[in-house]
Amino acid sequence: MNATIVKLAAQALLGRRRFWLLLAFPVLLVALTATVAALTDGDAAWPLLPGLGYPVVLPLVAVLAASSVLGPEVDDGSIVYLLSKPVNRHAIAVSKWVVAWAATMLAGVLPLWVSALVAGGGDRATAAGIAAAVAGTAYSALFLAISAVTRHAVIVSLLFVLIWEGLLGNLLSGVAWLSVAQWGLRIGHELSPELPDPTNLPWALLASVVVTAGGAWFAGDRLRSFSLRGED
């Protein structure tokens, strides 16, 4: 961890237009759930979470956060200002991840939990919050690693979420074993049986930890070999 990098990454996130897009998601989610819950009842609003909040809004927030703290700097090469310093590359990656993680928690997980409370609360709300926290943590590290590898990080991350986890995950139950969202749900299932039980618990825990730690480590490793190329 490096306090200066954390500060710079936070400024990069807050100082750009995409911050407003990031902020739009939680507002939208909470407002929608609250409206539906007010007009009907909490149970009618609940399907918004497994249908929209958890599989779409949460990963989108994580994609935006992770690619904002690293993507533009890798894209235009200005990351060399950070890398031409005697600072451990893994410390840089971890610092960036911490900022992306915090943004995901605030703009993705927290509103999801608030929405779950609005839609009735109880065990299932706590479970949904835990599931989102686990998935948000793993997502932010995974997308950070993708941002360190390719300039098309956003679209690659979206492919993973929407096509692999979403489209294929709905058709093939085996995808659950390689799906961040499903691991989170499996861990949440321990708290509330209303959440599905797609894999087994040790696997969900292990896989979440491995993706989180591996993603952050891999991003640092890519930074260690960062090459400055001409315009291409």
Partner: peptide, 22 residues
């Protein structure tokens, strides 16, 4: 690029998702 992609995804995936839910 990244910003445009996410913006388009909001318009083409998130908004239709909200509509379907409603």
């Amino acid at each position: 690029r990244g910003f445009a992609v996410v913006g388009s995804i909001v318009a083409l995936v998130v908004v239709p998702g909200v509509v379907t839910a409603v």
